[in-house]
């Protein structure tokens, strides 16, 4: 039983250890960015790797990715407008051309209006989301941790030490 639970326990620990409100809010902001960008291109993969590489709360980020992916479909017209505007700017043509001729950049689908629009929107939303969500995480994360500690599944999987640690999150 121990051998089965240990890897799962380690995984869960990894997901919840970066659990300061700041890490949580950044996880949410980056998750929104990754979630908004259409998948199936190199940009989404790169953003995903970047998200994984940063010390943010991956659990929050993963939840944000899932939710934003589901919601992004309805925002496509907006992204199309934004991306189309940016891509068609004469002043930026040289930039885009240079990127276009750069190896692997076409796999990012940057020249697609929705990809560009959603990416820019996600980038723009990083700071506001972080700033707005941080107080919320500061207020609600202790209560959330307290509840989590009581969950039998958390105790079983994480062990008492880590469950207590979760509950002790400031």
């Amino acid at each position: 039983m121990f051998f089965i639970l240990k890897p799962v326990r380690l995984l869960l620990k990894a997901f919840v250890t970066e659990s300061t409100p700041r890490q949580m809010s950044f996880g949410l902001a980056l998750g929104v960015l990754v979630g908004l960008v259409p998948k199936g291109n190199l940009l989404a993969i790169a953003l995903g790797i970047m998200l994984a590489a940063t010390r943010v709360n991956l659990a929050i980020a993963a939840c944000a990715v899932v939710i934003c992916t589901l919601a992004s479909g309805s925002l496509d017209p907006v992204f199309d407008q934004i991306g189309g505007y940016v891509l068609s700017q004469p002043a930026l043509q040289n930039l885009w051309t240079a990127i276009y001729n750069t190896p692997f950049m076409l796999w990012t689908d940057f020249n697609n209006s929705i990809v560009m629009g959603s990416f820019l929107t996600g980038l723009v939303l990083i700071w506001p989301v972080h700033r707005l969500s941080r107080p919320v995480f500061e207020k609600y994360s202790p209560q959330l941790a307290l509840h989590a500690r009581r969950w039998w599944i958390a105790r079983v999987l994480l062990g008492a030490e880590w469950a207590n640690r979760i509950s002790a999150v400031e």
Binding site: P77, F79, D80, L87, I114
Partner: peptide
């Protein structure tokens, strides 16, 4: 097949 959006083509080298 693109569900939506427009592809902007730029001059290739």
């Amino acid at each position: 097949v693109r569900s939506s959006g427009r592809d902007f083509e730029f001059a290739a080298k």
